[in-house]
Write a protein that binds this DNA or RNA. Sequence first.
DNA 1: CGCCGAGTTGAACTGAATCAAGAAACGTGG
DNA 2: CCACGTTTCTTGATTCAGTTCAACTCGGCG
Lengths: 197, 197
Amino acid sequence: MSIDEVKHRLLRYVCLSDEEAKAFLDVLEPFDLSKKDVLVEVNAHCQYFYWVQEGYLMNFQTDDKGFDHVLQFAIANWWTADLGSYLHGTLATYRIVALTDCKLLGISKDNLDNLLDTYPAFERYFRIIFQNALVNHQKRIIQNVAFQADVRYDEFNKQFPGIELIVPLKHVASYLGITPQFLSKLRKRSLFNSNLS
Amino acid sequence: MSIDEVKHRLLRYVCLSDEEAKAFLDVLEPFDLSKKDVLVEVNAHCQYFYWVQEGYLMNFQTDDKGFDHVLQFAIANWWTADLGSYLHGTLATYRIVALTDCKLLGISKDNLDNLLDTYPAFERYFRIIFQNALVNHQKRIIQNVAFQADVRYDEFNKQFPGIELIVPLKHVASYLGITPQFLSKLRKRSLFNSNLS
DNA sequence: CGCCGAGTTGAACTGAATCAAGAAACGTGG
DNA sequence: CCACGTTTCTTGATTCAGTTCAACTCGGCG
């Protein structure tokens, strides 16, 4: 990846000098994953903050009864990690797996800390990344309690158009907080409704 | 409020010079609210980021059917705002009201921008604020779908002990994503269970 | 080919909502 | 300080959204 690409694609929220962009590029480590590879395991330490160049991943938790709960689908140009583990050095509570073959760039906590100490521009960049993510998470919390499953499914399809072609529906159900069986019934219903119109 | 108080209480995540702390103190504007006062109205512009000195507030949305959905209870030493509106200048989607008499300190967007441009320490401070909030919101999203209402209620009581004395139960129900009637039944049930032990 | 995971479908069930009504607590004016 | 209306809380009966369990289909892959 070139310095210009870093500036335009990866760090688009801040203005960077070439020196800053280069310093960032220098500490990024490449990760290549195959479909179904585990990037972060529960109870391990999440050592990197990962930027997705290509591919899809998901970030989820499995409860005592063995049910998965998807926190996030990570797509190209998004960051992913078990944030709590990465930032505070605690054990990971989320598992991150590749849904397709993936190319990632990762930055270790030490390198990030150095970068933040040396170049304040990165403080701003991550402040903006986190602040935008926070606003989206707030929205999702309200939507989950305010809307019924069929509406949430429609919203999901608007937010991630075409993702059904890549992600198994059971994971979509888990993101929406419903069972795969019920999602199947919703889909049948909405197919029927759209045929009417 | 003194410079030392700012450094120790308000900006505890970063090391600040006296100059920086003073610059921050200088742009804080005081707000005094009485119980039930509206701090931010839906479809207005949220002009300030508010830090709570004393009192309790809540941040919620009302849906088409007239049901409230509580995003956050703000307590002493927390920040509150309609973040999307404050940061992006859009219309507020949340209403913020005082649950008790309150003393707040607010910083306007212009003043914050200046501060962030002048003193990078504040970029770090708000990066940390947002990043911690994000981790908590992630946890809440998963807990809402992974746990049943009675477990969520127990967790809520651990997180905000004694808040029931201040906040009407119907708002607690709304935070948990259930109806006040159902919360009432949960409470009766858990009272019964605790008498057994 | 055989198998396994994903998706669908149906029947029975349950957590939580809705509707309705009464009881307790609260705030406000006199 | 009491009387009153209003809001909050509780309780029960009924209904519904979504789950559970179980059976079956289908496509992909070794």
